[in-house]
Simulated assay, not measured.
Amino acid sequence: MTRPIALTMGDPNGIGPEITVKAYADPRRRPPVVVIGDPATLARACRITGVDLTVRPIASLADAAHAPGVLDVLAEGTLPEDLPLGTVDARAGAASFHYVRRGIELALGGEVRALTTAPINKEALRRAGLPYPGHTEILAELSGTSDYAMMMANDELRIVLVTVHQSLRTAIDSLTTARELEIIRLTDRTLRAGRATGPSGARPRIAVAALNPHAGENGLFGREDLDIIEPAVRAARRDGIDVSGPWPADTVFMRARAGEFDAVVAQYHDQGLIPVKYLGLEHGVNITIGLPFVRTSVDHGTAFDLAGRGTADHTSLLTALHHADDLSTQVPATPAA
């Protein structure tokens, strides 16, 4: 049996447990999977969704049976029975963090071939006293990674973000030429190495989206594109990277979708995520690039308003598992030194 993919069930009060059991039971799922989470919560998710699985707690990966109709769960802690669905709760936030931490440990040790994560809730993390705005920052810190970024991808677009989980004002203030160049270089290395979904080549074509409308119109609408982004693009080109821009953001994603570019570097969260999500949440996947292991995730949140109904769509999670399978097959994980 090949090494499994570790799948964290996400915030216990959101749709994570429900889409986890649905994806696990889906006949389209290819790779062997071990879930990290709470067995009782996952058993409740099976009842809610009508998924016919036997939830089987295990103490280690060696205990996994990978048997049909059996959900192997690495039990991480115990949740109280009165934890209410659809609510922000510090206990759920702390649990979701512990699941991710265990997954990172397994990935760094080479015990799993990839890590896929169901959604967590940022407010629940904060209530639990955990200073992380999201998965990306947890993964980077606990793996000791300093050069990393979030990539959102589907069959038509690959978007890498310069800034992620912060206000628009602070995102703009944090833009620097050094950071732009770091992201361009990381995007190029990732695509060359086949560490991202979709076609990769020896010299991928990278576009950089402008910050301001019309790329600033030569400084009429702000000088950030002239003073911060353009110097980074020029420096990357001197490195031999096929990169261009900054291009107006209202057309660059359309051009990438038409095949002109292999990836687009976006300046802030919504600039990059709106085009991907507009094409369909069920087709998108979140990939953390720069990590020493493959990590994928859904491109949606905890959806507390849907929790407990059994109707949440698990397609994005299934897509994330498939991409984790493909990427970890192309580039096997290496145990941390």
Rank of each mutant, 00 (worst) to 15 (best):
P119Y: 05
P119L: 09
P119N: 10
I120Q: 04
I120M: 07
I120P: 01
N121V: 10
K122E: 06
E123I: 15
E123S: 13
A124G: 13
R126G: 10
R127L: 15
A128W: 04
A128T: 03
G129H: 01
G129L: 01
L130Y: 03
P131F: 08
Y132D: 03
G134C: 06
H135D: 05
H135N: 06
E137N: 10
E137K: 10
E137H: 07
L139W: 13
L139E: 12
L139F: 15
A140E: 12
E141P: 10
G144C: 13
T145N: 11
S146E: 15
D147F: 10
D147W: 12
A149R: 12
A149V: 11
N154V: 09
N154Y: 08
D155P: 00
E156K: 14
L157A: 11
L157D: 12
L157F: 12
R158Y: 04
R158N: 07
I159P: 06
I159S: 06
V160C: 06
L161K: 00
V162G: 09
T163I: 13
V164N: 10
H165N: 09
H165M: 07
Q166S: 15
Q166A: 14
Q166D: 14
S167C: 12
L168H: 11
L168N: 06
R169K: 14
T170M: 14
I172S: 07
I172Q: 10
L175M: 14
L175Y: 06
T176W: 09
T176S: 15
T176G: 08
T177Y: 15
T177F: 15
R179D: 15
E180P: 00
E180I: 15
E180R: 08
I183Q: 07
I183V: 15
L186S: 02
T187F: 03
L191K: 00
A193T: 13
G194R: 08
A196N: 05
A196L: 09
T197D: 13
T197C: 10
G198T: 06
G198W: 01
P199C: 00
P199Y: 00
S200I: 02
G201Q: 03
G201L: 03
P204R: 04
R205D: 00
A207G: 04
A207V: 05
V208N: 02
V208D: 01
A210R: 11
G216E: 00
E217G: 01
L220R: 13
G222I: 04
R223C: 01
D225P: 02
D225N: 02
L226K: 00
D227S: 02
I229G: 05
I229T: 02
E230M: 14
P231Q: 00
V233W: 13
R234F: 11
A235P: 01
A235G: 01
A236R: 12
A236E: 07
R237C: 07
R238I: 14
R238N: 14
D239F: 00
D239I: 01
D239C: 02
D239N: 02
D239K: 00
G240T: 07
D242H: 13
S244H: 04
S244Q: 12
G245K: 08
G245W: 03
G245T: 08
